[in-house]
């Protein structure tokens, strides 16, 4: 019973490339990663053969770009009424939710894969630790999945793509910075330590930072995987509840 997922996946993925939006997005992504890596991250000035200046800006890029990728997933179906067609076909809701998410995730993977010249460059210039770079790419992809799952769910609560985008940015921001002083300073004064630790543990920045440093902790992988699973479940619930509206 995975046929529905495959059909939805293929339709969604080709949907990204049906308009110039996909190419515009990929160009913007590559431009921004380049600017951040070389100008802000000081790739050459650091004199180190690694991709840290490249990866360290990914959370901030994804914060804006993942909501843009995911905003249309459900909001558009709702707006045009095609959701009624889709959900009266003989598929289970979770198959559709999964297919849409995987399409958005694959699209992100394509964009991420197109940054390979950087990897070639750093390998040409020095002897980087390839294991750390592989971990960085996988960690980045996993984190992108987390952002996308959040934004796909939020896309299901509205028929307006702009609202879906803004909601996505806000919630993603909270997950990104929850381990930093921006959030922790607000709550340490009054909240019990266990709550502070819990909120801090949600932080994408902290977990992704560890992966980029080459510390692949199983707990971080489990964290992102269960975050994705949770938001996809919430996505299905949101679609089901809001069908009537």
């Amino acid at each position: 019973m995975i046929g529905g997922t495959i059909a939805v996946y293929r339709r969604e993925l080709s949907g990204y490339f049906a308009t110039p939006v996909a190419f515009v997005f990929i160009v913007i992504f590559l431009l921004l990663t380049g600017i951040f890596t070389f100008y802000v991250g000081g790739f050459f000035e650091r004199g180190q053969a690694d991709l840290k200046p490249f990866f360290m800006f990914h959370p901030w890029l994804y914060l804006l770009l993942m909501p843009a990728i995911a905003m249309r997933l459900w909001a558009e179906e709702r707006k045009t009424g095609s959701i009624e067609l889709l959900l009266t076909l003989p598929v289970r809701l979770w198959e559709v939710v999964l297919g849409k998410f995987l399409a958005a995730w694959s699209f992100t993977a394509i964009a991420l894969a197109l940054t390979f010249p950087l990897w070639l460059t750093v390998s040409y210039l020095g002897q980087p630790d390839q294991g750390v770079i592989v971990a960085g790419y996988l960690g980045s992809l996993l984190m992108a999945g987390g952002y996308l799952a959040i934004c796909a769910c939020l896309s299901a609560v509205t028929s307006n793509q702009v609202i879906a985008f803004v909601l996505g940015v806000i919630v993603c921001l909270m997950f990104t910075v929850s381990g930093t002083p921006i959030v922790l300073d607000l709550i340490t004064a009054w909240a019990p330590q266990s709550l502070v630790d819990t909120i801090a543990s949600f932080s994408f920045l902290g977990r992704f930072g560890a992966i980029v440093d080459g510390v692949v902790d199983l707990r971080d992988l489990v964290y992102f995987a269960s975050l994705i699973a949770f938001w996809l479940f919430a996505n299905a619930v949101a679609v089901d509840l809001r069908k009537a509206g």
Binding site: G3, G4, I6, A7, V8, R10, R11, S14, G15, A18, T19, T80, G81, S82, E84, L85, T88, L89, P90, V91
Partner: peptide, 23 residues
Amino acid sequence: PEGAPAYAEMTPRAFLDFVADVR
């Protein structure tokens, strides 16, 4: 469904192929 909703950016061929896939 009312108003015959479909995926606007698809061609009828691709749209029917999609429905055939799901079915």
